[in-house]
């Protein structure tokens, strides 16, 4: 099992809330993602076993939702919003600044496995643009100086053995 006993319990608790167990697929996927950091077919099998439904139903749903990476990513998944409100306030510049700073292209992970950089569609933070999401947190009203501070803080956190 990849899922920890705690995750299994959480999935079972979620399933008990709904009129139909299948409704717990998205909650289960979310719980698995939060534990592992990405999704994969082994996890679909485990979730299917817990919910007593075919694994293909879990895989089918998971493949639809873009929020969950389907391959391993760095410790910090940086998701830069590049939609209109953010673009008007420099989202392209934010992306290239991060590319230069981290020395990776969009879609890549730094060699120390700390940062993965991706571009995403609107995150609903339009009046505090430009913005990015790192793992589960939003970082809003960004500037070059602010990005410097955030990356510095996360790098220090990782070096001191901090957890997600």
């Amino acid at each position: 099992m990849i899922l920890t006993p705690e995750s299994v319990t959480r999935i079972k608790d979620a399933a008990a809330l709904y009129p139909q167990a299948k409704s717990a697929i998205l909650p289960a996927i979310t719980i698995a993602y939060r534990q592992v950091g990405h999704l994969n077919p082994d996890l679909y099998g485990e979730i299917a076993g817990i919910l007593d439904i075919p694994a293909v139903e879990v895989a089918e749903a998971a493949s639809f939702y873009t929020m969950f990476p389907k391959e391993p990513v760095g410790k910090y998944l940086i998701q830069v919003c590049h939609n209109i409100s953010c673009a008007l306030l420099g989202a392209e510049g934010l992306l290239s600044y991060l590319q230069d700073k981290l020395d990776i292209e969009v879609g890549e992970t730094t060699s120390d496995n700390l940062f993965t950089l991706v571009r995403v569609e609107c995150l609903g933070s339009c009046a505090t643009a430009p913005m990015m999401q790192i793992n589960h947190d939003y970082y809003e009203n960004l500037s070059r100086a602010e990005v410097d501070r955030i990356i510095e803080k996360l790098t220090a956190e990782a070096q001191s053995g901090g957890t997600l």
Binding site: S23, A24, I29, I53, E57, A61, F64, Y65
Partner: peptide
């Protein structure tokens, strides 16, 4: 799970159904 279309009510219903 990150899908704009799920803001549409019938898509949202499908999404809750798993």
């Amino acid at each position: 799970g990150g899908a704009y279309v799920c803001g549409e009510e019938t898509a949202q219903t499908n999404s809750i159904e798993g």
